[in-house]
Amino acid sequence: MTMLKIDNLHATVGGNRQILKGLTLEVKPGEVHAIMGPNGAGKSTLGNIIAGRDGYEVTAGSVNFDGRDLLELAPEERAAAGVFLAFQYPVEIPGVNNTYFLRSALNAQRVARGEVELDSMQFLKLVREKLAVLHLDDKLLHRGVNEGFSGGEKKRNEIFQMAVLEPKLAVLDETDSGLDIDALKAVAEGVNALRSPDRAFVIITHYQRLLDYIKPDAVHVLADGRIVESGGPELAMQLEQHGYDWIRQRVGPEAA
């Protein structure tokens, strides 16, 4: 059974610039898909369209999630349906306490799904469990959302939010970029701890190194708005060895 089904997706940004040009992708529960590609291929556009960010227009194709037309839903409805985007550039929101924000978000999702809200004790218990699993310090709970966080702390906070919100589908948009090796390992551990038969991941990355720690079920190469090559983990290794020029040569100049 397919969880996420993207079919022949075409999208423009800023009114006219065509970024996605017929992207097709299927993700099943429990799977981890890596999407790799050169800068400007449309990787972040894909993540933003799945999460429902403004500024993109889908000109053709469809995105289905659990049998629903995802493109019809507001960002918060997608979140409640189980979609999570780990931002490439997590936003600093001074003055909003991290714990308060996360509890409000979780309870908003629970209410939207017809579940009861967690009270502060229940929420705190959940948070403590997740912190322990992710080996995270609880100091980030008491600060403003991403306020004054280092790059690594911001990315870890994204993974922490993901752990608390327990989405069905997590899209990680270059979560590995700008991380040192310790932070990279911590992010990978977080993802691995959350892998489960009913949860899927789409990991968008420019480099192969995150995939040393998170073993994907499938690797796709996104170039010029389409998936031009799909394979197993070995595809990532080949890309690392030969670079993206190798793909351009293989798929022909029209896709480069």
């Binding site: 429902g52 918060e76 979140a79 001074p94 924000f101 409000s104």
Partner: peptide, 26 residues
């Protein structure tokens, strides 16, 4: 910032309220 909050499940009204309050609270 609005999109960030909404992508976590807060509706637009809630997101606006939280950001507005935070703006003053700072």
């Amino acid at each position: 910032a609005l999109f960030y909050l909404r992508s976590r499940g807060l509706d637009e009204m809630q997101a606006r309220r939280i950001l507005t309050a935070a703006f003053g609270r700072e």
